[in-house]
Design a protein around this nucleic acid. Structure first.
Lengths: 179, 179
DNA sequence: AATGCTATTTTGACACTGTCAAGATAATTT
DNA sequence: AAATTATCTTGACAGTGTCAAAATAGCATT
């Protein structure tokens, strides 16, 4: 339903009807609508983590190649599953209704993997010693997040420039990595 | 009201009551709620454009200094006016209810100024000739947007690291600029 | 097997929301 | 002064999330 109608187009009642159950049945399994959305969002993060874990296994040797693959993969996923991405990183879950502890943990684990990978590169000397890995991770991830959001929400960017933008993004990250 | 309760906490009825007018009075000035939000969002973009126009007048000579000031200013504004920022770049306006043509124009003008400035630097030889200015603008702006969003929505980033992150962001942009 | 307990579901209800249609009022033009 | 237009108001409708209480189902223990 999220894929079809988006996060906002989903209501407890329509969802219940789809399942073939009463309006308030879900309230015995989830505290409120937000808790349910958090749970789905959490699943999304776990999927992403698994996805990028495999990407890491495949080609984590070459930093340049991995980063390129990562960026492409990130943009590809967020573009092909815009509603899911919107749920995972969207405001309804994170700001309006306070995010579940469990969601916070899942999403942070996802990000932590990224930081750890960067840190391992630094230890191997592929990344300049002067760089603060956490900041580097935050800024580069922000870049991908910003691109995904502007793209999905239809601000400034358009789909035709995804590839070119991804390349520019990789260039910018690598330029900063090898200072 | 947006600053107090956020975009989502605002309703046509509560707004009308605040103004001291009937529930549906606004519907003779705006097509629907989205059109009203678009209008406010548009004002926000005009304010931003004016703000950054002044920043440009003050110190557009030195690219490095300007970029640093721009990033600081961007992060400062988005952090101190999170609800306004959320309205301007938020999903409700851009995705759910189609954005007004006039809003699209105002926001794009804002971005265009940024692209033009970058292009002027390239012409002055301060930016590498190999760089595609549009891509450069898109990616760097995305970075700021992503940081603002992750910060305001409370994902990954926390307020204490704004300055450090801003510095890292500037470094990354400059590293790519002088390749 | 029967009883008691708990988990689950349902119905009813409440206070909201955005927005349309029709009528009432005010302002402006002829 | 009359007519036209702009603005506002009230009533209404379908929809929302969610709480309280009643009803059902499933399971464990005596």
């Amino acid at each position: 339903m999220i894929g079809e109608q988006g996060v906002d187009g989903i209501s407890m009642r329509s969802l219940a009807e789809r399942v073939g159950v009463s309006r308030t049945a879900a309230y015995h399994h989830f505290k409120d609508k937000n808790a349910l959305l958090c749970a789905i969002s959490e699943q999304g993060f776990q999927t992403w983590q698994a996805h990028f874990a495999q990407l890491m296994r495949e080609q984590s040797g070459d930093m340049n190649r991995w980063l390129k693959a990562f960026v492409r993969s990130y943009m590809d996923l967020s573009w092909k599953h815009p509603e899911e991405y919107d749920l995972m990183f969207g405001r309804p879950v994170w700001k309006n209704g306070e995010p579940t502890e469990s969601l916070k943990a899942a999403s942070f684990a996802c990000f932590q993997d990224y930081v750890d990978l960067i840190r391992s590169w630094q230890e191997k000397g592929k990344l300049s010693k002067d760089i603060d890995c956490l900041r580097f991770a935050q800024v580069s991830w922000s870049m991908l997040h910003g691109m995904s959001r502007l793209l999905n929400d239809g601000i400034y960017l358009d789909r035709n420039s995804i590839d070119a933008m991804s390349d520019s993004a990789v260039e910018m990250i690598l330029a900063a990595a090898t200072v």
